[in-house]
């Protein structure tokens, strides 16, 4: 009888306890996950749409509803999502989703081009995994906004010295990421001409 009690205490009880804790933990997290899943998917969609608006240089109210409204009004999906177009006061904009290698992983961006398909109307980062504080700074507004109105192909210059329409600031301490980013953006114009005009 005593032996049985210690057997229970030493073997069964810990297992049972662990099992119970695991089940409770998984139930809680799964419940929360499932109840927020819809919202997370909606966020993801809104994030992509916002990137499209940013790249096209379109004005919008920065709320989920605001993004949705402007997107529905202004943006047309072309060719099953290979690119997007938008009409603005300054002319038609072509917005192209692109991705390419970075230092650590794939960098995905939205590039907005004006009608000549060479001048950038804007640029937005969709996803990137570069080193925080170094290459990760490509996500900062000063970096993405500098492409507005610039003409590709680009040359990299030291941070804070870009002047000519084909010069862009590189990021100090992140030469590699800057180079990868330049290669990616330089491809935008030729890719766009091929996809949109079939050149």
């Amino acid at each position: 009888m005593i032996k049985q009690a210690t057997f229970y205490k030493k073997r069964i009880y810990p297992l049972l306890f662990m099992f119970l804790v695991t089940v409770i933990c998984i139930l809680i997290t799964s419940g929360l996950f499932l109840s927020t899943q819809e919202r997370a998917t909606a966020n993801e969609l809104s994030f992509t749409r916002r990137a499209i608006l940013d790249a096209g240089g379109l004005e919008y109210t920065p709320t989920t509803e605001g993004i949705e409204k402007t997107y529905k009004e202004k943006v047309q999906v072309e060719d099953g999502g290979t690119y997007y177009t938008a009409e603005t006061a300054e002319g038609k904009r072509y917005i192209l989703p692109m991705q390419g290698p970075g230092l650590w992983g794939t960098i995905a961006i939205m590039v907005g081009l004006e009608e000549d398909l060479t001048t950038f109307s804007g640029l937005a980062i969709v996803s990137q995994n570069e080193t925080p504080g170094l290459g990760g700074r490509i996500e900062e507004p000063w970096f993405t906004q500098q492409f507005q109105g610039k003409k590709s192909p680009f040359t990299l210059v030291n941070e804070g010295t870009a002047d000519a329409p084909n010069e862009v600031d590189a990021i100090t301490g992140a030469t590699r990421t800057s180079e990868y980013f330049r290669n990616l953006t330089n491809r935008a114009s030729t890719d766009a001409k091929r996809i949109i005009r079939g050149e």
């Binding site: 933990c25 809680i28 994030f47």
Partner: peptide, 24 residues
């Protein structure tokens, strides 16, 4: 093991809530 499990659960809660409400 129990401690790790409990900690991980709370961290997953933080992760899920952030993903749903503060995606950026």
């Amino acid at each position: 093991m129990v401690e790790t499990m409990v900690i991980a659960t709370f961290v997953i809660i933080v992760d899920i809530v952030l993903k749903a409400f503060y995606p950026e």
